[in-house]
Design a protein around this nucleic acid. Sequence first.
DNA 1: GGATGACTTTTAATCGATAAAAAACAATTT
DNA 2: AAATTGTTTTTTATCGATTAAAAGTCATCC
Lengths: 296, 296
Amino acid sequence: MKTDSVFKRAFNDAVDLVSRLEDGEPLPSENTLSIRLGVSRTTVRKVIASLRASGVVSGSGRERNVHPASEAMHRFPQDETVPMAAQVEERFMEWLLRDNARPGTAINELDLARKFGVATTGIREFLNRFQRFGLIEKRPNAGWVFKGFTTSFALELFEIREMFELRSARALATLPDSSQHWRQLEALRQEHLALLAEIETRYHDFSDLDSRFHRLISTAAPNRFIDSFYDIITVIFHYHYQWNKHDERQRNEVAIREHLTYIEALFSRNISMVELACRAHLSSARDTLLRSTSGQ
Amino acid sequence: MKTDSVFKRAFNDAVDLVSRLEDGEPLPSENTLSIRLGVSRTTVRKVIASLRASGVVSGSGRERNVHPASEAMHRFPQDETVPMAAQVEERFMEWLLRDNARPGTAINELDLARKFGVATTGIREFLNRFQRFGLIEKRPNAGWVFKGFTTSFALELFEIREMFELRSARALATLPDSSQHWRQLEALRQEHLALLAEIETRYHDFSDLDSRFHRLISTAAPNRFIDSFYDIITVIFHYHYQWNKHDERQRNEVAIREHLTYIEALFSRNISMVELACRAHLSSARDTLLRSTSGQ
DNA sequence: GGATGACTTTTAATCGATAAAAAACAATTT
DNA sequence: AAATTGTTTTTTATCGATTAAAAGTCATCC
C-alpha cells in the first residue's frame, strides 16, 4: 500500500507554520493551507484532524484556533516523510558508491528489494528511471549491470557538459542589459563573495551555490534536454560530494574563485573571455571528479 | 505472470532455421541453438520439446533429427512474439499521435492500463522510461501531462541534435585513412546510390538507412549520452514517419541527395564543407518535422 | 459567494504472488 | 576432459489487490 509520507511531511510543515502564530489566532482556511503546504484539501483535513487530536488546534468548523505553546507539538521523524521512491535512490547510491563500486557488477532486483526492505516493483521503477544517468545498463530478461563510475564516464559527462555550458554562457553574454538574468547573476556574485569571506566554516554550502549558478546560466536559453542533463550532473555531484570529502575546503575555494572570474567575464560580454573562463572552470571540475573515478 | 513472448519468438526463429535444413539432418546442439536464437538453454529446451510435439523434430537426447517438410510447421502469430513492454510503447505512441495530441492532456495510468489491457505497473514502467523523451512530465501523486509535440519541442530537439552531429562529423573527418569508418561510409554511400536509383518503389527503406547513417557518424567518437540522445531521435522519427506520409517519396529523395553531399564532404576531410553539408541537411530535416508539430 | 463539512469517486504508490526465463549445478557421453 | 543433456534454483516480467492522496459533489453556513 501507499505510504503516508505526504501526510507526515504536510503535518510537520503545518506544525512549523502554526508555531509561528500567536496562541489563540485563527487557523488559516483549508484552501489556504492546501496551497501553502502543497497538498490536496483531503490531506489538509487529515492534518487538521491530527492537530486537533493533539490539542494544537481547538474548535471546529469556521471557529478553529491555534495553540502553538502546547507541548504536544511532536513531529514525525524525518525519514517517515520521504516517499519510498526517494529512499530507494538514496540507499542505492550509497550502496553503489560505498560498498560495491566494481564495473561489471550485476545488479539484482530481488536482492536490492530485500536489502532495502521494499517490493521489487519499487526497485525496478527506480532502475528504469536511473538508467538515463548512464551508470547502469539493462540486459532484457537478465537484470542490470553497473557500468562503473569510470574515467570514461566522467570524460563523456564533461564533454557534453562543456558543450552545453559554453552554448548557454554565450547566450547569456548576449542577453540585453534589461534582462533579469543580470540582476540574478549579481546576486549570485554577492553570495559567492560572502561565502568566500567565511570559507573556513561554511565551505559545505558551496555545493548548493554551484548548482544554482550553473542552472542560472542554462536558463539564458532554455532547452528541456539540457535541463534534463543538468539533473544528471546535479545528482552525480551531490553524491560525489557526499562521498569524497578529501580536500573539500580547498577545492571549493578554488571553484569559487573560478566562478568569480567566470562571472566577471559574463558581465564583460566578451565572448572569448567567457569561453576561456568557462573552459577553465569546467576542466578543473572535471579533474576533481576524475580523481575519484576507477580505471578505464 | 510473465508472457511467453520470448519462447514464441524463439520458436518461430527455430522453425525458420530448421526449414533451411534437409530432412533427417541432426538438430544443432542446445548450446548452439541458444546462441543462434539469442535465448537461454532453458528456453531452447522448451522450443525443442514443442518442435518434437509437432513432429518437426524426432528422437531424443543426442539423437535428434529434423523434418522440415512436415506440414505441422506452424508459427505463432507475430504479435504474440513481442513482449508487453514493447507493445505498450507502440500503442501509446499511436494513442498520442493519432487520437489525442493536445498539449496539456492529462495521462491517466489506470485509463491507459484498461485501454491497452495491461496492469497499471506496466504503464507506469513505460511512462517512467518514456519521460526522458521530453514529451511528458510527471506531477507527483497526480499523474502525468502530455507536453505536446510542439514547435518548441522540435526546435529544442534539433538544437541538441545539431551540436552533437557537428561534433561527431568533425571527429569523423579527422579520423586516419586507415580507420574502418571510411569503408563503412563507402558502403553506406553505395546503399544511398542504390536506393536513389529505385526511389520510386523503395522510398520507405530510407528511414532505416537514415538512422544507420547518423549512427555511424556518431560512432566516430563514442559518448554514451550522445548515443542515448540518438535513441530519442530514432523513436521520434520512427513514429513521425509512420504518422506523416505526406510527400514521403519526395522528402526522402531530397534527404538522400543531402546525405550524398554530406558524405562527399566527409571524404574530402574539409571541415568547413562538412559543417556546411551537415547544417544544410539537419535544417531541412528540422523543417520537415516542424511542419507536423502543433503550436507554440 | 467563498469557506466548510461530509461524503463519494477516481487515481497513484506500493505490496506480494506467480509463471517464464535465465543461471547454476549435476550427470552423462563421447 | 570437453561438450552435451538433465535437473534445480534464482531472478525477472507481469498481474491484481490495497491504501493514501487527489479530485469532485453538494448542501450549508456566515
